[in-house]
Design a protein around this nucleic acid. Structure first.
Length: 275
DNA sequence: CTTAAGCCCTGCGGGC
DNA sequence: TGCCCGCAGGGCTTAA
């Protein structure tokens, strides 16, 4: 499931492969992938070139030479692949951007949850209002401790759910939320406003370093995630709690426990992570 | 304003 | 072998 590190991995792959490519034709085997008017999307992208690929939180921005931007969210299992023009569609290929150089950019999505839409570059938040509400990126220069102290104090939500709220911090999903709470020795059901500044400092450091480390390892492959080159990530080998329910805690040996917090599967160590 | 629940989708694994 | 059911989950929508 693509979280920020996986989306960043896709971003850098697309940057290497398709920037400079010109969209000669578009096929849309699954029109629902396009939010809004599909014909307008096609008309607004045809004959333009990809000029850059950016990212904000879990959103991708495919910049076009006509001052428009394709805003793409992979949700659970969306992936891009670059194929020869005559390559057969995958079982779940939803849109094909045929390039003038004889290649094609496929967007494939097993669960069909992902969506894309066309926006005016610089005005993406009009097409996707959520973008205007996204919290800071989990990097040292954007995610300040003072900010965390301020926002955590205002919520009684379980800290696990709080971390998944993209309006508070952008880019964290279920896997990395469990990982950083384990690293910080914080129980996932602890109300956000019960964490003291020293705990928030530890949590902040953990979030920032974990996300950076996962990007360095090209993300986590749990189900189908792969980058544009069809390569899987490496970070799943370094996960310390996610998917390890029943296995011994890597710190204390206590079997890890899986519970549900805010409708989400949550794995933690009942001994290390105390409320 | 907040938080909670339902929904979208498909593949997979468990139970029988 | 095969069918059915429940689970997985990000974010949007609707409800409380």
């Amino acid at each position: 499931m693509p979280e920020l590190p996986e989306v960043e991995t896709v971003r850098s792959g697309l940057e290497k492969l398709i920037v400079g490519g010109e969209i000669a034709n578009i096929r849309v085997p699954y029109p629902k992938v396009i939010m809004g008017d599909a014909p307008a999307f096609i008309q607004g992208t045809l004959a333009s070139q990809f000029t850059a690929i950016d990212r904000r939180g879990k959103y991708l921005f495919l910049r076009l030479s006509n001052q428009r931007t394709i805003v793409s969210h992979l949700r659970m299992e969306g992936q891009y692949s670059v194929e020869p023009l005559d390559a057969p569609l995958h079982k779940h290929t939803e849109i094909v951007f045929e390039l003038a150089d004889g290649r094609a950019l496929f967007y494939n999505d097993t669960r069909r949850f992902g969506r894309m839409t066309l926006a005016e570059t610089g005005l993406e938040q009009i097409a996707v209002p959520t973008l205007a509400k996204l919290g800071p990126e989990p990097i040292t220069t954007d995610l300040h401790l003072e900010y965390m102290i301020q926002i955590f104090a205002k919520s009684k939500k379980p800290v696990k759910s709080f971390l998944l709220d993209q309006t508070k911090i952008a880019g964290i999903g279920n896997i990395y939320a469990d990982e950083v709470l384990w690293q910080s020795k914080i129980h996932p059901e602890t109300p956000a406003n019960e964490l003291d500044p020293s705990q928030l400092a530890i949590l902040r450091d953990s979030i920032i370093s974990e996300i950076a480390l996962a990007i360095k390892h090209h993300g986590t492959t749990v189900h189908s995630f792969s980058n544009v080159f069809g390569e899987v990530g490496q970070f799943q080998n370094q996960l310390e709690v996610y998917g390890r329910s029943g296995l011994p805690c890597l710190r204390c040996g206590t079997p890890l426990v899986k519970i549900r917090v805010g409708q989400r599967g949550t794995t933690f160590c009942p001994k290390c992570q105390v409320r």
